[in-house]
Amino acid sequence: MSQLQQNRNLLKTLPLQIADLLAEQIAEGRPMPGDRLRETELASTYGVSRATVREALRLLELRGLVTIRPQRGACVTQLSTKEIFDLYAVRAAMVSTASRLAAERCTPEEVEVLKNRLQLLADNIDDATAYIRHSRETVEYISALADNPILAGYVSDMAKQMGRYVRISLATPERRQRSLRTWEETIDAIVRHDPERAAACHYRLAVQNRDAVLEELSRINPA
């Protein structure tokens, strides 16, 4: 229960807290796609009731991370080429819109924040976990700059669903270097108030990440 207490957020229900912790673990590859998620074991691990765990698993099912079958229980959803294309199609459209709006609106103070965030990405290029975290936070910041709460909410919700794919897409130093170069172009376009270039660059970043996941999936499961 200690990990749960350390991550406690009074704005989140207990099932949502557990769902978020499990989502992080799934993104890290533990448990693996296809692995069973047993209510009794999870309830014991987190010191909660099976009903609480059951609700957490339903939340993960809504995110597409868990599949629940009658009489068979829950398991981690298999990686899916169709899901990858579907998720990244929506993701690319949303983040490109966010960057376009941010380029139209960002102030000199926000420009400095973006430059600092870019530096954090560069400083953590050799640490996959830190790089992924800073990349996610940069997307969230750009979504906030867009000054569109509906868009920011969708971007945040989708990030929870895409965690394991993002980790795959940025797993190698080469992929992170390519990501950083595209981030440099995206942020440069935003700070120069070039909406169309900002949108195009961030769209390209999402597509690059999609293609990296597809490449890895084909390597793991060759046709």
Rank of each mutant, 00 (worst) to 15 (best):
E140R: 13
N116P: 00
I150R: 00
D147A: 10
D127M: 08
E196C: 07
R192F: 00
L65N: 07
R176N: 07
L205M: 09
L120R: 12
E104C: 07
E83A: 14
V166Q: 15
A200I: 05
L120K: 10
C75L: 12
D194K: 10
D157W: 12
A198W: 01
H202E: 08
T172R: 11
V139Y: 05
Y165E: 11
H134S: 02
Y88H: 14
I125K: 04
T67L: 13
Y203L: 10
D123Y: 01
A89L: 12
V76E: 08
R133G: 05
L114E: 03
G64N: 10
A200Y: 03
L65A: 08
T81Q: 14
V66M: 03
A92Y: 05
D147M: 05
C75D: 11
R136D: 14
A93E: 13
K160L: 12
I125Y: 02
T186P: 00
T81L: 15
R178K: 15
G163A: 04
E83W: 05
V207E: 12
K160C: 06
L79D: 15
A198I: 03
A93K: 13
D127W: 04
V90H: 05
R133T: 12
E174R: 12
R91E: 10
R69H: 11
I132H: 08
A146R: 03
A146M: 04
Q78N: 11
R72Y: 05
R117L: 06
A98H: 11
E137R: 09
D86F: 07
A144Y: 03
R63M: 12
E109T: 07
T182H: 10
D86K: 11
S156A: 13
E185Y: 07
D126E: 14
E174T: 13
A206N: 05
E109Q: 13
Q119R: 11
E83C: 01
R136W: 02
H202W: 04
L65H: 05
A103Q: 11
N124P: 00
A198F: 01
P108V: 07
I150G: 01
A206S: 15
T97Y: 04
S143I: 07
K115V: 02
E185R: 14
I132G: 00
S80Q: 02
T172H: 07
Y203M: 09
H134D: 05
M158A: 07
V90L: 15
T129Y: 02
A93H: 13
D147P: 00
Y203S: 06
I168C: 06
G163T: 02
D86A: 15
S156H: 09
T186R: 04
A93F: 10
